[in-house]
């Protein structure tokens, strides 16, 4: 088992060690080990059914792992002290529809042990953080989808935990609300929270997370920063996409320079920016007009596709 403290003696906020969980014959989590450090934002990126939610539920004690362990600041995750450090926002809108925003926050604050002024302050903080102060006394059933999502987040974090587990918090919300949720997560990070964020939207992971674990079939395929993952998979290579004037020689010209023609767009792998100039020179020399040119760096989706042979949203 890995040590639960850093060399400096500071306990690792979240340490997942060889967690395995099966449901019948289906193995949802097949031995995942991850350390999440203080103030980090770890993205768990993977398609639906990859095992992300089961892993999160293992951390918060809603799923009992068949083997392995989860430690929170050095203590087993099942202990009350560890639970107080965890704040979980489930995928579902786990709210009382017939209560108001404020009443929902009050209820979940009570469940977390908050009372009196501490509870009232926490409710006000949550309403402000979720931009719901003006809808504090509205019934949940009258809120928009985005507002409910934000309230759902606030309800999970009302006790101001040090570790925040967000399980696909942007499912089913419009782009504007999604941006608002990103701002909420960024605000949490600014305040020093350690965040675990599951999603199957790579742009969310790219924007919010400083480390990303790509999960598929219950395993972590690869883990690192976005740059590390792309470099590991593609090195320094980028793609140049060139749209040329229609000419019978375009296909042969593209193939001669190591490229492929897809939908009338020539794709060329390049290692250095200077390679682009060479391509433009060659096109001009051979009488081909370049209509459009894009330099595309491989992204997390490219990494996932390369590693699994499948698209993230399959």
């Amino acid at each position: 088992m890995a040590t639960s403290t850093l060399a400096s003696g500071i306990a690792i906020p979240l340490q997942i060690d060889s967690v395995v969980k099966s449901f019948g014959e289906v193995t949802a989590v097949a031995g995942i080990s991850i350390d999440v450090h203080e103030r980090a934002c770890l993205g768990l990126l993977g398609p639906n059914g990859a095992g992300k939610s089961t892993l999160i539920r293992s951390i918060v004690g809603r799923v009992r792992p068949d083997s392995g362990s989860v430690r929170v600041f050095g203590q087993p995750a099942s202990t009350p002290a560890a639970r107080r450090q965890l704040g979980w926002v489930p995928q579902e809108l786990a709210l009382y529809p017939l209560l108001t925003s404020r009443e929902n926050l009050g209820a979940f604050g009570h469940y977390q042990g908050l009372r009196g002024k501490a509870l009232r302050d926490a409710i006000e903080w949550c309403l402000e953080w979720a931009a719901l102060s003006d809808r504090a006394d509205s019934f949940v059933k009258t809120l928009s989808g985005g507002m409910r999502r934000r309230l759902n987040m606030a309800a999970g974090l009302i006790h101001r935990p040090r570790i925040v587990l967000l399980d696909e918090p942007t499912v089913g919300v419009d782009p504007q609300s999604r941006n608002r949720i990103f701002e909420m997560v960024e605000a949490l990070r600014t305040e020093g929270a350690t965040v675990i964020y599951t999603t199957h939207y790579m742009e969310e992971a790219e924007r919010l997370c400083d480390r990303i674990a790509i999960v598929d079939h219950g395993r972590v395929i690869v883990e690192g920063s976005k740059e590390e993952l792309v470099t590991q998979s593609f090195g320094t290579r980028s793609d140049v996409l060139m749209r040329l004037t229609a000419a019978p020689t375009v296909a042969a010209w593209t193939a001669a320079r190591g490229g492929t023609l897809q939908d009338d767009v020539a794709h060329f792998p390049v290692d250095r920016p200077s390679d682009i100039a060479a391509l433009l020179d060659a096109a001009a020399r051979d009488g081909l007009d370049v209509i459009d040119l894009v330099l595309r760096r491989p992204n997390l989706e490219s990494v996932f596709l390369k590693l699994t042979g499948r698209d993230l949203r399959q």
Partner: peptide
């Protein structure tokens, strides 16, 4: 069904 039960139990209740 809504997940509120999960949330309550995960809070240590």
């Amino acid at each position: 069904e809504s997940g509120a039960l999960d949330r309550i139990l995960s809070a240590g209740v």
